[in-house]
Simulated assay, not measured.
Amino acid sequence: MSKTATKEENPLINIIINVLLPTIILSKLSKEGEALYQLGPKWAMIVALALPLVYGIWHWIKHRKLNIFSTVGMGAILLTGLITIYLWSNDSAKPHVAWIFGIKEAIQPLILGSLFLITRRSTSPLFRTFIYNDAIFDIKRIEKSVAENNLISQYEGLIWKCTLYFFGSFCLSAVLNLGLAHYFLNDLAPDLPNWKEEYNGIVGSITIWGFAAIGGPMMVVAGYILYMMINGLEKLTGLDKESLLLPR
């Protein structure tokens, strides 16, 4: 992997800008007051949404490369803004807000997971980008052994099975996100004082817990998939683990 690619995909920066900073802004800066950091619920929401949106646009302008995960994230940010506008359009209670927000939260992992299936036959399958790639596996040696033993269909079947498992982790994340949104927003009462501050804090909580809901199952399933791939490839190719994996 080149230095440029590594810089583009820096996960720490993505987490800070897309999750941590918006959460801090929504939870800590939403109060009304005279202090400079007391932005109020409206401006705190604007800043929290604008931060990852501006970062995503800057990333695209600088690298001129569409990042699928950033694009889906930016779509989720815009949906959050639209839901907030709907909720804040007047101070009357809005029915089914928890479900509307929950569906929005569930859509993001479902889209991401579906992309693993959609790109399966493309020149750059996402499964090969994130799990089965030449930074971990000695793919040239593996595919040479598969071809020599005429096991291409079994090899492709193993990859497809693991792709489905990874898609399943995103489906689980979607269900968890739906449940989280319903849990946090179900008791929101717009007729109470400072309910917009409360709403911002809830959105911040959903953001941080939603990240865990996506990342947690994905990491667990990714570990299991690596185990499946190594065991499956050992049986198909006759190569041992040290031969399948590139030296670290």
Rank of each mutant, 00 (worst) to 15 (best):
A48G: 06
W43V: 06
S30A: 10
L39A: 03
T23D: 06
W43F: 13
I46C: 02
I68R: 07
M45H: 12
A48R: 00
I25P: 05
N67E: 14
K42S: 09
L29H: 07
P52E: 09
K42V: 12
H59E: 05
K31M: 09
L53E: 07
I46D: 03
I68W: 10
Q38I: 00
P22N: 07
W60N: 10
L51E: 09
E32V: 11
V19Y: 05
L53T: 15
W60H: 14
P22A: 00
V19M: 11
L21R: 04
A44C: 04
I25F: 08
W43Q: 11
Y55Q: 06
S70I: 15
G56R: 01
V54G: 03
L26D: 06
T23N: 02
P41M: 07
L53G: 04
I46M: 08
L20A: 15
L26P: 08
V72N: 05
E32A: 10
L26A: 04
I57F: 14
S70E: 09
A35V: 01
E34K: 13
V19R: 01
K65F: 07
V54E: 10
F69S: 09
Y55F: 14
A35Y: 03
I24Y: 06
I61G: 02
Y55K: 08
L66C: 11
L49I: 07
L51N: 05
S27T: 15
H59I: 03
I46G: 00
K31A: 12
V47P: 05
H63C: 04
W43C: 00
H63K: 11
E32P: 00
V47D: 02
V47E: 03
K31P: 00
W58K: 11
K42N: 08
F69N: 04
L36Q: 10
I61E: 08
V54Q: 08
K65W: 09
S27A: 13
M45W: 06
I46V: 15
I68V: 14
S70L: 15
G40Q: 02
E32Q: 12
G33I: 03
K42F: 13
T23K: 07
Q38R: 08
P41I: 06
W58D: 06
P22G: 05
I61F: 15
P52A: 01
A35H: 06
I57N: 07
A44G: 07
P22I: 02
F69K: 03
S30F: 00
K62P: 01
K28A: 12
